[in-house]
Computed example of a mutant assay.
Amino acid sequence: MTGNSCIVLSDDYKGYELEYFCVPRHYEDSLECVLIPSGLIQDRIERLARDVAADLGREPFAALCVLKGGYKFLADLLEKIKQCYRFSSENSVPFSVDFIRLQSYKDDHSTGDVKVLGVDGLSFLQNKNVLVVEDIIDTGKTMKVLLEILEKQKPKSVKVASLFVKRTSSSSGLRPDYVGFEIPDRFIVGYALDYNEYFPCESCLCHQ
């Protein structure tokens, strides 16, 4: 498993001009560019799904989605994982899905004060392979809190899949097991990553 390998967007990466894509007009004045088109995101998720399926083999697993932004990545990732199993075997691999919410952002800034919601009743993860699905990891401090909580449940294994990892000087050094894209320290929206509930777009967009 290549794990930490991913597509890296350089600091001077400019993305694509908005005029080349179908961006809702009422969002245009708030956006800088299309950072990653939807098609590229889907292709990258397909490869991540193949890596996850190869690592898990035929073992059941529990997918733990970090809300709110992770739900779309979770849905697309699990669908592509199921496709991998269908192509490689007649038998499907059972998995469960649950959700957790971690809160550390206010507007577009991380407050550093992590609030963990919905963690009661995670004892069912004991002795299970757990796949944590996150939309974006910024400093990594929030994810570290979650991993500490999960460790107390005595799972068989824990892997983290994050579609985006932000390159920032305040990073805790945490690196997910599966990474879609490493991006510069810019605030992004789209693909279920919102700004105060706005920008539900399919592509990854750079917010001004």
Results as ranks from 00 to 15, higher is better:
D135L: 03
L77I: 07
G173S: 05
V119E: 13
F124S: 13
S89Q: 07
Y105P: 00
S172K: 09
V66F: 06
L117P: 03
R167N: 12
V114I: 15
P94V: 12
K156Q: 05
H109D: 11
G112K: 08
R167W: 00
G180E: 04
L117M: 10
L150G: 00
I81T: 02
A62L: 02
V116D: 05
V158G: 03
V97D: 07
G112F: 04
G112I: 08
K166M: 01
S89D: 09
V133S: 05
G118V: 15
S172W: 04
S88A: 14
R175F: 06
K141H: 08
D138W: 02
E90T: 11
D135H: 01
S169W: 07
I136P: 01
Q126S: 09
Y178P: 11
L122K: 15
S171Y: 00
D76F: 03
K72V: 01
S110W: 06
T111A: 10
K144Q: 12
A62I: 03
E182G: 05
F73E: 00
V97L: 15
K152S: 15
D76G: 03
V119Y: 15
Y105L: 05
R175C: 13
L102E: 04
G69T: 04
D120F: 13
F164W: 08
I81C: 00
V119I: 11
Q126A: 14
S89R: 07
F124E: 01
K68A: 05
G173C: 05
D107T: 08
E151P: 10
K72R: 12
S123C: 09
L77N: 06
G69S: 09
E79L: 13
C84G: 04
L174F: 15
G140C: 13
S104D: 02
A75H: 03
E148W: 12
V145G: 08
G69R: 14
V66A: 10
I81F: 01
V116Y: 02
F124D: 06
S96P: 02
K106Y: 10
S110P: 14
L67H: 00
S88H: 11
L125R: 07
L146E: 03
G173Y: 00
E151N: 14
S96Q: 04
L122Q: 13
E151S: 12
A62V: 11
T139F: 00
V158N: 08
T142S: 10
K68P: 03
L102Y: 01
L147H: 00
V93Q: 01
P155T: 13
S172L: 10
D76V: 09
V93Y: 00
V158Q: 06
L117V: 10
V132R: 14
S172R: 09
N127R: 15
K115M: 09
L174W: 10
V130K: 08
R167I: 09
A63K: 12
G69K: 10
L102S: 06
E182V: 01
D98I: 12
Q83L: 02
Q126W: 00
